[in-house]
């Protein structure tokens, strides 16, 4: 069902999350419209990863609502928890890229990329391979299709992980510090792929410490601190004229 472009692809409403006595998210809300890239910045421990994990229910929020294309994620409108199967079906429409790549080591690069399309979506294998080859070309790794992940560099692993997520044709891509585990000289190749995705109109939510990326590529910046959104504005305004003291202090450390 086609939706008007003005409806957000992803919407989170008042998400709260605690681990035992520690409250990590204090009612976080955000929206991303189709084709937009939103960067989430904030000091470590501010709840960025937890927020991303709540969005596709790798972590169950204590309260709040999440919608993908207007459909609830994790809970039915009557409050009932979704089954494993229902949750899987909705997660299949969100791509996620992890800080530590999380490739499946027993599969080759190509097998990593075709696994979910074939097993989850039921795409015929030949067609999945053709699509995977295009994606590997896009991330510059077509010559690595038959090697196992252990033989790749961090930057190459992360590009495979991006191709793997893209193979599901997701509505939105969630990135959790995709370059934080990389040697400095490998960061650029991953950011380049992400820039291409933005340009092609992918909808992206990116947790990052790459200030240049956030400034140049995103349509919106969200600054989180201590489990809440402190500022939510355009990159220009955030970087040239942060409103809160917390954001100013944060930026001072990165510039």
């Amino acid at each position: 069902m086609a939706r008007p472009d003005s409806d957000p692809v992803l919407k989170a409403l008042n998400i709260t999350k605690s681990f035992g006595a520690l409250q990590v998210l204090h009612g976080v809300s955000l929206e991303i419209n189709s084709g937009k890239t939103v960067s989430i910045l904030g000091p470590s421990g501010s709840g960025k990863s937890t927020l991303l994990r709540c969005i596709n229910w790798l972590e169950r929020p204590n309260s709040g609502e999440i919608y993908l294309d207007g459909e609830p994620v994790g809970r039915h409108p009557n409050g009932e928890l979704m089954s494993d199967r229902e949750l899987a079906a909705i997660r299949a429409r969100m791509g996620k890229v992890f800080q530590s790549f999380n490739l499946w080591p027993h599969f080759t690069v190509l097998e990593n990329v075709i696994e979910a399309p074939v097993q989850v979506l039921g795409v015929p294998k030949a067609q999945a391979i053709e699509q995977a080859e295009q994606l590997l070309q896009k991330v510059g790794l077509q010559d690595k299709r038959d090697v196992y992940p252990y033989s790749l560099s961090g930057g190459q692993k992360q590009r495979v992980a991006i191709a793997r997520a893209l193979a599901m044709s997701p509505r939105v891509m969630l990135f959790d510090e995709p370059t934080s585990a990389l040697d400095p000289e490998l960061v650029g190749e991953v950011l380049a792929v992400m820039r291409d995705l933005t340009r092609e109109g992918m909808t992206m939510l990116v947790v990052t410490h790459e200030m240049a990326f956030a400034r140049d590529v995103s349509d919106e910046v969200i600054f989180m601190d201590q489990g809440e959104i402190v500022e939510q504005t355009t990159p220009d305004r955030f970087f040239s004229n942060p409103e809160t003291r917390r954001a100013q202090q944060f930026l001072a450390r990165y510039q």
Binding site: A116, Q119, A165
Partner: peptide
Amino acid sequence: KSQIEAAQAMGMTRGLYFRRI
């Protein structure tokens, strides 16, 4: 756990990622 989370994030059900991953 990281591999399991990747499988879940890709839309795999418990039985599927147990068998395949």
